[in-house]
Simulated assay, not measured.
Amino acid sequence: MRLVFRLVALLLIAAIGLAASFVWWTQQPIEVSENALEFRVMPGSSLRAAVRQMNEAGLSVDADLFVLLARWQGKSGAIKPGTYGTSVGETPLSLLEKLASGKVIQASITLVEGWTFRQFRARLDAHPALRHDTLGMSEAQIIARLGLPLSSLEGRLFPDTYLFDKESSDLELIARAVASMQARLDETWLQRPAGLPYKTADDVLTMASIIEKETGREEDRAHVAAVFVNRLRIGMRLQTDPTVIYGLGEAFDGNLRKIHLQTDTPYNTYTRAGLPPTPIAMPGLASLRAAISPADSNAIYFVARGDGTSQFSRTLDEHNRAVNRYQRGGK
């Protein structure tokens, strides 16, 4: 009996020792191959697969002990995929907390108000933290891949700064930006007052894109909107240069000429009445709101003053005088 007690005591001491060693291990710095490194846990990875991916990246983590730690903490099924960062001083316990909470490394990309979809694609293609699944795809193929009920992505992405997990797909980012714009467009459409010359929410989006390209001044947006809304109401052509430039595409060399204004394209609002067939850029929220909240104004003309603001006129005579003053140096 005394021997049994001794064996039990020895086993108990050994168990306590092992437990103490294990707890000690969970709080010891992990050996890393560099002062700071990144590793990626792929979607669908098991805990052991995640540990293997860590080790391949340069972290020295014992798989059996890490699995035991995760089970002890009740987090063996809580590992989240993504790209993680670690550095000297990281412990198994802090690493587990990071994986379970999904504290991934995030990158960002900014979609600028007034950009075209072509400009945004160039930014996407050049971003080093994205997975470039859309390379070689046409716009129509991107739309089909995302299952969107759209004919064009122009104007359909909301300008904003987007955070994303490194190595995310550029398709995911496009889908997020499209959903963000649609949500704001739906909200704007519901808030529109009666009497505006828009048949659909897409008309609002197109008008907002024109406003975005015509002015960057907050105080002028509603007045620019009023000019174009007034023209639509009286059946006057919009005659806005940015739509002509958009219709020229990559052929535009930065110098808008009279021949361009006279050459008919679907986007030439000098030769065609009404709104162009699609937006011409990606408008911000301020331009969306201006499109449904035009100023209380009878103006149907405006001209740039040269300082970023515009002069608005009700008659052609007023407008000609403003053009002479601000564009031709007259008094």
Rank of each mutant, 00 (worst) to 15 (best):
1 M>I: 05
3 L>D: 01
14 A>V: 14
15 A>M: 06
17 G>E: 00
20 A>I: 11
23 V>E: 08
24 W>R: 12
27 Q>P: 00
27 Q>N: 12
31 E>S: 09
32 V>K: 03
33 S>N: 07
33 S>E: 05
34 E>H: 14
35 N>K: 12
36 A>H: 08
39 F>R: 06
42 M>T: 11
42 M>C: 00
44 G>I: 10
54 M>Y: 03
55 N>S: 08
57 A>L: 03
59 L>I: 08
62 D>Q: 14
65 L>N: 11
66 F>A: 08
70 A>H: 07
71 R>A: 11
72 W>Y: 10
72 W>T: 14
73 Q>R: 15
74 G>K: 15
74 G>M: 12
77 G>E: 07
77 G>N: 10
78 A>M: 12
81 P>W: 13
82 G>F: 09
84 Y>Q: 03
84 Y>M: 03
84 Y>S: 03
85 G>V: 10
86 T>H: 04
87 S>T: 13
89 G>S: 11
96 L>R: 09
100 A>T: 14
103 K>H: 06
110 T>S: 08
112 V>E: 00
113 E>Y: 06
113 E>T: 09
116 T>Q: 09
117 F>Q: 03
121 R>H: 06
126 A>D: 01
126 A>R: 14
131 R>E: 00
131 R>C: 01
135 L>V: 09
138 S>I: 13
139 E>I: 14
140 A>S: 13
150 L>M: 05
156 R>I: 05
158 F>A: 10
158 F>Y: 13
161 T>M: 07
162 Y>I: 11
162 Y>W: 09
163 L>G: 04
166 K>N: 07
171 L>P: 01
171 L>E: 03
171 L>W: 06
176 R>W: 13
177 A>I: 07
179 A>Y: 02
180 S>N: 14
181 M>T: 06
192 R>Q: 11
200 T>N: 06
203 D>A: 11
204 V>F: 02
206 T>A: 04
212 E>D: 08
213 K>T: 06
215 T>F: 02
217 R>C: 02
218 E>G: 10
222 A>F: 01
222 A>C: 00
225 A>C: 04
226 A>Q: 05
227 V>Y: 02
229 V>E: 02
231 R>V: 03
233 R>Q: 14
234 I>K: 15
235 G>E: 04
235 G>L: 12
239 Q>K: 02
239 Q>T: 05
243 T>A: 13
244 V>T: 13
247 G>C: 03
251 A>Y: 03
251 A>S: 13
261 L>E: 02
263 T>H: 13
272 R>Y: 07
273 A>M: 04
275 L>N: 03
276 P>L: 04
277 P>Q: 15
279 P>T: 10
279 P>H: 12
281 A>W: 02
283 P>E: 04
284 G>F: 00
293 S>E: 12
297 S>M: 11
297 S>V: 13
301 Y>V: 12
302 F>C: 10
304 A>L: 09
307 D>S: 08
308 G>D: 00
312 F>E: 00
313 S>D: 02
316 L>T: 05
319 H>W: 07
319 H>L: 09
321 R>P: 01
323 V>H: 01
